[in-house]
Design a protein around this nucleic acid. Structure first.
Length: 197
DNA sequence: CTACTGATGGTCT
DNA sequence: GACCATCAGTAGG
């Protein structure tokens, strides 16, 4: 069924990996059941040159430390009241990361509905980086986990439609980096967090 | 459909 | 004490 990808999957350069992640499955195996979701939107953050990255200028703190480690590690962090989740990219010492911005439910719909609340429509369960972690049951405890290991892992999926590149979301004060087209998403997929004019 | 806004708490200086 | 890689709500076209 669903098996983790090989560790070597994560060795691609940051921008390449961000594109390749679109279409892959995130699988979370919980005692209550299995949740599977397809990645439809990602963003690449490439410290130390990227003003918008937490690791800009090789800033190395308790929070960013994991990005200096192996590709494929899980980088979680808190944004206001939400948990956001990333895939570490680049060789050891290069603090790149890919933010998972939106996914599409594949399996475990009942669990996701339970996690997000019975009043919400399915499209609102996972169409944003802070929403999908709640839906999938992902917490800060996964900081430093590896995406090739159970119970939370990336599994081979399929690209269903063409993807498009555009500027990243929510990084207002980042100078030139604001315009870099480092956001990748499946065109017309209803779970993509937002479309720009 | 878009645009704006208040709530929110962890992290870093 | 400032700064957010956000969300849910509301108001209006």
């Amino acid at each position: 069924m669903y098996e983790p990808v090989d560790k070597s999957f994560f060795e691609a350069p940051g921008l390449e990996l961000a594109k390749q992640l679109v279409g892959q499955y995130i699988v979370h195996e919980l005692p209550e059941g299995r949740i599977v979701a397809r990645i439809v939107e990602t963003e690449a953050y490439q410290g130390p040159e990227d003003r918008a990255a937490h690791s800009f200028g090789n800033r190395r703190t308790k929070r960013t430390e994991i990005m200096f480690g192996d590709a494929g590690l899980v980088y979680t962090y808190q944004m206001h009241t939400h948990t956001l989740i990333n895939v570490v990219a680049g060789p050891v010492g290069t603090p790149h990361a890919i933010l998972i911005r939106a996914v599409e439910p594949v399996e475990g719909h009942a669990l996701m509905r339970e996690n997000r609340g019975p009043k919400l429509k399915e499209v609102d369960w996972t169409n944003g980086p802070g929403k999908l972690t709640v839906a999938l049951g992902i917490t800060m405890d996964y900081y430093g986990h590896h995406w090739s290991h159970k119970p939370l892992f990336i599994s081979k999926g399929e690209r269903l439609g063409p993807i498009e590149a555009g500027p990243r979301v929510g990084i207002g004060n980042s100078g030139e980096a604001v315009h870099y087209p480092w956001r990748f998403y499946e065109i017309d997929n209803p779970f993509v967090s937002k479309y720009r004019k």
